[in-house]
Amino acid sequence: MTKDDRSLEGQALGKAAEIGIKSQLDEVQEVNVDVDAQALGLAQGKVDSVSIKGKGMVMEKDLRVEDMELQTDSVSINPLSLAFGKVELTRPVDASAHVVLLEEDINRAFNSEYIRSKMQGLDVHVNGKVTKVDFQQVDFRLPDSTKVALSATILDKETGESQPVAFTAKPEIGEGGQRVVLTQVEYHDGKDLSPELTEALLERSAELLDLRNFELEGMSFQIQKLDISEGKLALQTAARVEQFPS
């Protein structure tokens, strides 16, 4: 088999994996899968490496990933699976992955129907009494390389009055590398209207910034490093691939 033939065979496997990935996403701007393998190696169930690059990938909960790159080392596959255009692993493989989230996309997810439905009719202590409140609007910002800024408008359903709550916090790796959690809360003007309002926002943040939201079928991630810049959150992760999407 010629070099060109081998290249075409690898491209066919890559295209099959791309179709599998796209089937798991609500939207995707671009996804490319590169299967680096030679014909003889494929016949023996050996693939030198697999790389996945995606852009504009909309996952569950309306959370959009600006960029995702995943790279494996050598992979052992079932040669018989190739007849069906699939890359079926005979054992799990370790990989590294890089995920980039934009401020505007996190903001959109915060105000999605799914998250907003979980922030309505909450019983909290405000001004010394228990009252039922709705979060009407949430604003998530990444103003610099050290912190996250969160603000929201809160509607008191009993009085009909609205009031703001706003604070900054430090993003850190939490829950065994599965989530980005916000710590070291500092309130604007040093004023804390209600710890429970703050806790509700922190919990929704952790829920959105949970790596399990970004996992494709057969893959799991663990955050190793956070890189924050103005308007952007980048996650360096270790990945475990049990199976490639098909």
Rank of each mutant, 00 (worst) to 15 (best):
M1T: 13
T2W: 10
K3A: 06
D5M: 14
R6F: 11
S7Y: 13
L8D: 08
E9T: 13
E9S: 09
A12E: 11
A16W: 02
A17H: 02
I19R: 12
I21A: 00
E27A: 09
N32H: 14
V35Q: 00
A39V: 12
G45F: 09
K46D: 15
V47L: 02
S51W: 06
S51C: 09
S51L: 06
I52M: 02
I52P: 11
K55A: 10
M57W: 01
V58Y: 01
K61C: 11
K61I: 14
L63E: 13
E66W: 12
E66A: 12
E69A: 02
Q71F: 05
T72R: 02
V75P: 03
V75E: 03
L80W: 10
L80F: 04
A83G: 04
F84S: 08
G85D: 07
V87N: 00
E88L: 00
R91D: 11
P92Q: 06
P92W: 05
P92Y: 01
D94R: 11
H98F: 09
H98I: 15
L101Y: 05
E103L: 06
I106S: 04
R108D: 15
F110A: 11
N111R: 09
R116Q: 15
K118R: 14
K118C: 03
K118M: 11
D123T: 15
H125W: 04
N127R: 08
G128V: 03
G128E: 04
K129P: 00
V130K: 05
D134Q: 01
D134S: 01
Q137P: 00
D139T: 14
F140L: 04
L142T: 02
P143T: 09
S145N: 15
K147G: 08
V148L: 10
V148Q: 09
L150H: 05
I154P: 00
K157W: 11
E158W: 07
T159F: 10
E161W: 01
E161N: 10
A166F: 05
F167G: 03
A169E: 06
K170N: 06
K170W: 07
K170H: 02
G174E: 04
L182N: 07
Q184A: 10
V185P: 00
E186F: 08
E186S: 13
Y187I: 10
H188Q: 12
D189T: 09
K191R: 15
K191F: 08
D192S: 14
L193I: 15
P195D: 06
P195Y: 09
E196Q: 12
E199K: 14
L201S: 00
L202M: 09
A206Y: 06
E207H: 05
L209M: 13
D210A: 07
L211R: 02
E215D: 09
G218P: 03
M219P: 01
F221L: 14
Q222C: 03
K225W: 04
E230C: 00
K232Q: 14
L233N: 05
L233Q: 07
L235A: 01
Q236S: 12
R240N: 08
